[in-house]
Design a protein around this nucleic acid. Structure first.
Lengths: 192, 192, 192, 192
DNA sequence: AATGAATGAGGCTTCATTCAT
DNA sequence: GATGAATGAAGCCTCATTCAT
């Protein structure tokens, strides 16, 4: 388990992670060279390897911190929220926010660059993802139990995830529709 | 515009396209080597270039034929269907079918490997995609006009596309839920 | 087990092996770059990897063929030789010949570059070396049994090997003393 | 000419030299990184350069001190020894002792890592080596003059050197045969 | 059409060395 | 003296592409 640095403005590792996030999102992991990342940070490619043992580990740590970051945000925003439908709205808003975060840290990488990880890293990230997904299932199951959702929790989560991730391809956070409005619409899809 | 060969069992180009489709889906375009493709077909890498001028053109033609193929399927299945909700069901079923086609030709490549194309090819595929998306908008607009859909057609299409593409990551065509049942559930999400 | 190509003038792999042998002997494995080897052969560095999966495998195959080559030579020259002291002379002469072979293939690499191999290759070469050393022990044991050698066979082999390998650092095959004369002197050291 | 520090327990330079000796012997000069050495000493790699101007100079000084150390030892042990055969036994014992010294300072580096030095350092070490080899030739010539050795002094030295250096690959100082016994056997090879 | 050796650019990574703190 | 981040050259290797056969 690594120190969390993604949001640390001063940290050298943090700078690398943020630069990598932008580039991986733009061009994909495979087409992003370590030179690209280093140039974005303002160092030479060799210097990257003082902070990360190899390119893949940059992706791995980025993924880890992305998940942890969303979970943290969800925890904060869920504080005191008891209504299940509102809890779901929080989850959706947090995920959407992570996907379109101003900081440029693209949550969608988690889905698209899955196969770029080696076995070991996949296993590690998978365990984090499982915990994250469990949070969704808990919320959706409660909603279903309340009689507020017609479809199965698992299926609902799949649909929400797909729709949310896809927003990355078309949604403009600076456009007419705000993130919260988008979240509402998505919630209204599965719950009524 | 190229000859369509994707479904031609005997065609050498067709074999290449089908092999490439499987590999691109499995490992992504960048991580699939031209040798991988050749090996899958049973020829040597140099021979590929008798059929395609370069690696990217394999992806481009594959994408082109994938879109044309779905459109064709949609045309066939829509024949005589006048009810808008049933028309939507046909579109969804066809798209899902393309994503999980037995032939292994992954429609999802269209979204995930978008950035692997150069500018020229992107423009070409984009024009095809626009036509394809227009078909969806036409159907969804009609549904909205019928008062059968609460959300905006554009938004609805984004949600459907996302949810459908995401099925690639979790849905098992040989599992308990059939493709048609899955399509129904997806339709019921946006229309009631 | 690879095809033997070291002595095949026409073979591309053979050319690489011979070039590598010269360079490894001159500068050592670690200080010899793949570009050096390729340049010596007259190709570009990337082309090496059509013939060998990596740099280490060049060394490994070279070592393998060096051992097999000496064994073959020993077999030929031993034909019909029954006297144990003369058999020893043959072994010594063959080993010395391998060390100073005109073809530039340095047998001494076997000792000096041992640690440049990975575990798997070490194991493979080790098995070949064990067989080769057994041949020496058989001969020396017979000599000892004949009462013609005062020291232990194992110790004798160590001494002979060291002295023989060391000739690489000082002996000039084109100088006044011929290889056979050198071999005699070495034999006279352990046997009288 | 540098201060001698190899055997100075407290000296920082001494610690570096001793650590380097172990590693050079284990993995060779080229495969030993400056970080390896620093780690062994317990400092960081950058700090090495407060003590030595570059990596090669570590090897150079190590070699220098190894030669000087053996010479010193030979001087001490030869004190009062007039018999030429016994003088030779002293030389052999000292060289073997240097090769297998408990302190881990491997004399064999002198032969194996010769080519890792640049021209300037090679020249310097060569002059020391020449003096060292002269000591051997003096002793062996005297022995030959006494009629106690059948082969030429130069050749004898080559054989002894090779056999001695080779012991590094097989001899175990903690095994059944002591160093003195080994030295005797080696002496008996050339003199009778 | 196919082969397969060769190309050559470019990728990831290593590592001795420097230097501000 | 020590640190550790940064450098930048160089190393090994990959891979799309070419081309003579």
């Amino acid at each position: 388990m690594n120190q969390r640095v993604l949001k640390d403005e001063a940290s050298a590792k943090g700078k690398v992670l943020r630069a990598a996030a932008v580039l991986f999102r733009e061009k994909g992991f495979a087409r992003t060279t370590v030179r690209d990342i280093a140039a974005e940070v303002g160092i030479l490619s060799g210097s990257l390897f003082h902070h990360f043992p190899n390119k893949e580990s940059i992706l791995a740590q980025l993924m880890e911190e992305l998940i942890l970051g969303v979970e943290e945000e969800m925890d904060e925003q869920s504080l005191g929220v008891t209504d299940n439908k509102r809890r779901l709205a929080v989850l959706v808003a947090c995920e959407l926010s992570a996907i379109h975060a101003q900081t440029g840290t693209g949550f969608s990488i988690l889905m698209t660059e899955w196969r770029s990880l080696g076995k070991t890293n996949q296993a590690h990230i998978l365990s984090l993802r499982n915990r994250y997904e469990q949070r969704w299932l808990d919320c959706l199951s409660a909603l279903k139990a309340d009689g507020l959702m017609p479809i199965e929790p698992t299926l609902a989560r799949h649909f929400i995830r797909g729709a949310a991730m896809e927003t990355w391809h078309w949604y403009n956070p600076k456009g007419a529709m705000g993130l919260n409005r988008l979240a509402e619409q998505l919630v209204s899809l599965v719950s009524r």
